[in-house]
Design a protein around this nucleic acid. Sequence first.
DNA 1: CATGAATGAGTGTTCATTCAT
DNA 2: CATGAATGAACACTCATTCAT
Lengths: 228, 228, 228, 228
Amino acid sequence: MRKKPVQQRSQQMVDALIEAAGQVIAERGLEHFTTVQVAERANVSVGSLYQYFANKDALLAALVDRLNREMGEMVSRIAPSLLQADPQTLVRGLLHAAFDFLGGREGLYMELLRNWYRLDIQRSLHRFEQQMLEITRAYALTHVADLRLDHGPAKGFVIINSVVFTLLRYLSLPNRALFDRDRLVEELTTMVAGYLSAGRPRNPRSKAATVTRAKPGTGRSKRNPVRI
Amino acid sequence: MRKKPVQQRSQQMVDALIEAAGQVIAERGLEHFTTVQVAERANVSVGSLYQYFANKDALLAALVDRLNREMGEMVSRIAPSLLQADPQTLVRGLLHAAFDFLGGREGLYMELLRNWYRLDIQRSLHRFEQQMLEITRAYALTHVADLRLDHGPAKGFVIINSVVFTLLRYLSLPNRALFDRDRLVEELTTMVAGYLSAGRPRNPRSKAATVTRAKPGTGRSKRNPVRI
Amino acid sequence: MRKKPVQQRSQQMVDALIEAAGQVIAERGLEHFTTVQVAERANVSVGSLYQYFANKDALLAALVDRLNREMGEMVSRIAPSLLQADPQTLVRGLLHAAFDFLGGREGLYMELLRNWYRLDIQRSLHRFEQQMLEITRAYALTHVADLRLDHGPAKGFVIINSVVFTLLRYLSLPNRALFDRDRLVEELTTMVAGYLSAGRPRNPRSKAATVTRAKPGTGRSKRNPVRI
Amino acid sequence: MRKKPVQQRSQQMVDALIEAAGQVIAERGLEHFTTVQVAERANVSVGSLYQYFANKDALLAALVDRLNREMGEMVSRIAPSLLQADPQTLVRGLLHAAFDFLGGREGLYMELLRNWYRLDIQRSLHRFEQQMLEITRAYALTHVADLRLDHGPAKGFVIINSVVFTLLRYLSLPNRALFDRDRLVEELTTMVAGYLSAGRPRNPRSKAATVTRAKPGTGRSKRNPVRI
DNA sequence: CATGAATGAGTGTTCATTCAT
DNA sequence: CATGAATGAACACTCATTCAT
């Protein structure tokens, strides 16, 4: 940002520009938005845009920052009320919140998240993972028996990406006739809640199976038989 | 495609152009590749490119078609050998195959899949889902007890997207120090295999819960703790 | 200048702006300096700049005026002490003064003089010539035998421009390793002092040669054979 | 240059663009010429300009190269016919040639040379000096008695810059009423020829004078008293 | 059919200047 | 009077697409 928007009017302009950028991106797509369009949408001249943002990328970065922040806020808002529920309820609640967040603001977040690798949205996703990890830990403190405690970074990574991109793709579907939102949430709830509970002795009679990789030879050595 | 390449030379040229397009995209990224670059890489003039492809988008569509086809071939190649194994082995095998596929060809598929919404890769993913569904059905015929038979479209959707995008994002990670590929595959295997086995009467006492969505339609606000 | 700065504060501001303009030009070059930079450097707003200068060019004109005045002052300061010396000493003294003047003020004058044709520095140079003419006349009054008295405007023109631009280019040289300042001054002294003394019967035996222009025909008519 | 103009048509285009650039610069001045204007003048689109020149600067560089080359050719064309003449005739001939060259082509060279420090015209001037040095050496071989042989780089530097910039400024004069071209050439001839002959024992009775700098204290150390 | 030079609309960005506060 | 945010015309440069050869 070129100038620190200390004054109120300035901050308003910065906000208006970020907002306008979001709208234009949501409407035209990331690859078709131009600085002039953003300025026009914000009822402002291009020059003003460049008074507050060094360049187009800086504007995008600010928008991503807002996404990042709002994702955090969303989680913080939702989490407390879910800590007393059982795992499925927790997961389902988070999923609905994520759904609402993604579809919100005219699909702005969707277009941004679809471009997670161009913009620096990886950071946002990473922070999201951290928050989920914290929630899981907090949850585990009161529900000792229900969830495994030793969640490494991999579990959070798997869950977040599975959920976010599955939702994202569902919302991007031209035709949602095959199954509705609730069905999707239930499926994801089943999958995620099951995954979170995994590892506990769920079914004592389940036979221990020793399996090897089907196609072990692609350069990965010592992938040992795994006990499940 | 402007002309049906009935002649052999023409088909070769079409192939060379698609191949070149893939290479250039893998190297420079989707947003930085140009038709001239593609033509040069294919040792052909731009004019010839436009002889066979109406425009840039048609070229991209052809590339996506190839992706679509190769994804199908990949699955068909892998599936037969896995039908005898137990669920985890099946899933793990498919995951490793998907991993290899994504990382293959210098990351060409990654760059394409990252742009699933710009190009029309949704079709490819959908076909992929169909194939997975078929595999699951075939598998179920011989492993009746292990997997639920009533997989609707939602389950396939969830699995495919969860897996594909999680792998995609992992491979896009600048730093893979936190956990390695095998760990990720194990986690996904656990999640997916568990999910596929879910629905069977695991906990007889569980159901009989009446749940209502807090605000089922557009329901944004205050989605209250829910009793399941 | 838009307003006559009758008040003291105003005059200070005008001075500060001119000074700031000079500094910015010296640092960034004439083609890269902006009115905003100048205003900031003068601890003043752009609006104020435009209160006193109709536009950018007016500011530059004021700067050139100052250059003009300071060049005059420089000559006036130097001249008196040199009127008693012999021609070479006079010339050498003036050259060193010109050198110091050009290199002074962080090279401000250099950047301005390099742009003698954009800004209206021709006036400054012309005034400079007048001053030199006066000095020569004054000098001739006490050194009748040493210098020709009939210096027309051409001689002053030749000397001033030869000296100023040669010094200017020397100071603009990226590498001054070939010869140092003193050497340059000596050469110029030799040339100029010799030139000023020329016309007197130096070499009685010089044969009268009738020569024709080497390439008389390029559009300049009747340039007749010249008697030397 | 982006593409090697191997073909004739291409070379023509390159030439046309350079020529157009020269014309636009001569008409509008260096700071007001745009790539679009150049393209239009060359009856070509901007895109074509950029097919042959990486950017605006590359176009300017090509123009400067042409200046450089033409200056060299001009000297080579003039020099041979002057080697038999006496010094004044030599100098006068070169001066008239330089005059014609500068004023030629609608003043294109003037505008370029006025910008010797922005463009890389210093190289051209340096090469020009080298050529003059060679001419002087060749001349000295047949006119041993007339010219000093030990011309260091300083002498050439002084002459070239004195002459070039004095001519340049004369041609830039809005009003040439004070003295005409021939007068200027005569004055320069006198000065330069005198300078070139200097150093020879011209006047045995000239008293040796020891002089010190008029204003020695500006930071240049060891500037010793000079023997004249 | 093949070629690749030519096109020109479109984009990001700058900066002299104005004017509401 | 001073301020500095706002303006928008102007410019360098790109690249998908065409078409004369």
